[in-house]
Design a protein around this nucleic acid. Structure first.
Lengths: 337, 337
DNA sequence: TTGTAAGCGTTATCAA
DNA sequence: TTGATAACGCTTACAA
């Protein structure tokens, strides 16, 4: 459809391509008012639009970054993406979004495709299983930032929740409200999922610090779909927990489903706290006390950090930015006496 | 960082660039096993990766589409985007995502930037206020699909919910369960927001068909933030509604907030139904009866339709694809006698 | 079966 | 103040 090129404009304006190029790049200094006008008019008349691809080829920069996420439907992802897009928008950059769906093979393919497309940088919510791929990027000093998770063995600027603090916050809040039989609810632990590990470790440490013993029965590690049943089993056993700490929104859903299927009362019989602020926290009964991630700040920071790398190619030591969780005090926990 | 080019590979393999190009494009037919191997090895050795930008310049196709949405945080958006990404992934295409934030100026700027970047097509969740921009694209026969909303006056393939049917579904379900004082809850009506208008019209028509009169008091059109207060005012007046139809998830939130701030019982005092399936529908008490949009199918269809346009440049009459809403029967409505 | 050379639409260098 | 001309890295006739 669109075929009008710089040459056409040049011809119509009776100047050379180079002059048009000057004009487009606002190097007006040595340009007569006269030609400037003629070019402007020619552009207008032809409805000319520069071809960014051609420019990119020459300038070796595309004003585009790639983002690879492991779960597009997750709320954290949505919100961080929103912030990334906004930051890029400010700088005139575009964002290509790819969904690895937690599949390392896809993730790897995407990295390569995006590099082939000459993106200027990459923000990745990593699956955690492509060490060599990322290590290679680091060696090449390719601009790269991790978000949410990190890849063991790869040193890269990373933006993460302070997971230890979040777990500690949960335990402390529960403990200070008089709860003493606290169970943690999470998907099965796997080494490559760093936040999960950290939240679990944070929990264990906080419990010990408080002088609680962590009963093996109170580590409920099962995939969210099986959670309601697993919880029922647990609650059939003695020494029921009186508080549940769900390490993310998905496990929270499992917990709430369980609660709904039983006659347990929250917070009378059971206190609930979780990481990730969910949109219905305020309208649920009781209103849910949660530990929110500052998703917007995290996305902003990740983008800013990527641009630091893009602008000054030589980068210093990679830094890990830990964002403090935010306690949203509502009513799913009540002081117990 | 990456500087190895086809010429380097050619040199190392002792062949010409064209031969390497043949190889890369899998035109092996007239290539000796011998050279093939040499090229493969040279590529391997140098870690060569083709520069897609250069290819795009020549081939006039970027294997990239642009998507402009008016609200990145909306669940519908997230889910449709997910489907779009997946469909594109299958075809080896990438997706550039832009957020117009319902600002027509931004939307317009994005359209132009994406065209400059030579995207092969555009999927837009339109603000509804850029008629000329889109009209121009249509004239140029540029591949374009609208999702969720349409732009009055622009004839383009569009993927939308069957909003009339959705509204009718709500009224019918409520009526058949014995509710007779049904109120509709929605943001203020504006002409460029087609789905909103359609849902409202659908409601009005369905009510009339059922022989109900639509009391002006039962059209609660106010921005979601003010909704709880507005509803309180309404419920202070006589002839309270006994059922509420919220036209989307955001207004639903307003309704639920209102319910929470009062002592109204759902579904005893008040039945609730809404468009958009919300993730907590199942765990809310009572479980929420909703009218879901088939978001995944919609995203898939939009993408397929875009590729139809991309592949056969001459397109027939634009089509509007209306997707049927899906009633998710839960317990926020109970038979009334 | 492989190589030469001419583009693709810009930008950049250097003359004029 | 403006214009030739050579890149940028790849594809593609056409030749050899």
């Amino acid at each position: 459809m669109k075929k009008v090129t710089m040459a056409d404009v040049a011809k119509l304006a009776n100047v050379s391509k180079s002059t048009v190029s000057q004009y487009l790049n606002k190097r007006y200094e040595y340009m007569s008012e006269e030609t400037r006008k003629r070019i402007a008019q020619a552009i207008e008349e032809l409805g000319y639009q520069p071809n960014v691809i051609a420019r990119s080829l020459k300038q070796k920069t595309t004003a585009t970054i790639g983002v690879i996420v492991f779960n597009m439907l997750h709320m954290l992802t949505t919100q961080v993406l929103h912030a990334i897009e906004e930051e890029c928008q400010k700088r005139g950059f575009h964002v290509i979004i790819c969904n690895s769906n937690d599949d390392p093979e896809k993730e790897k393919k995407y990295v390569n495709m995006l590099l082939a497309k000459q993106v200027d940088g990459l923000i990745v919510f990593p699956t955690g299983k492509n060490e060599e791929v990322y290590r290679h990027l680091v060696e090449e000093r390719f601009p790269l930032v991790f978000v949410d998770r990190m890849v063991p063995g790869v040193e890269v600027d990373s933006v993460l929740l302070d997971n230890f603090k979040a777990a500690e916050m949960a335990v402390d809040y529960l403990a200070s409200h008089g709860y003493d039989r606290i169970a943690i609810v999470l998907p099965p632990l796997v080494a490559y999922n760093v936040p999960r590990m950290e939240r679990f470790e944070g929990f264990r440490i906080a419990m010990e610090k408080r002088g609680f013993v962590v009963d093996e029965n109170n580590i409920i590690a099962v995939t969210p779909a099986l959670l309601p049943d697993e919880l029922k089993k647990r609650f059939a056993k003695p020494e029921r927990p009186n508080a549940l700490f769900a390490i993310n929104d998905l496990t929270l859903m499992g917990v709430l489903r369980f609660v709904k299927e039983t006659d347990i009362c929250v917070p009378e019989d059971l206190a609930i706290i979780n990481i990730d602020d969910v949109p219905f926290a305020d309208i649920y009964t009781p209103r849910l006390t949660t530990i929110a991630q500052p998703t917007f700040s995290m996305g902003k920071k990740a983008t800013e950090q990527l641009f630091v790398q893009i602008e000054q190619k030589r980068k210093g030591k990679p830094r890990v930015f830990r964002f403090s969780p935010i306690l949203k005090e509502r009513t799913s926990i009540r002081r117990k006496d």
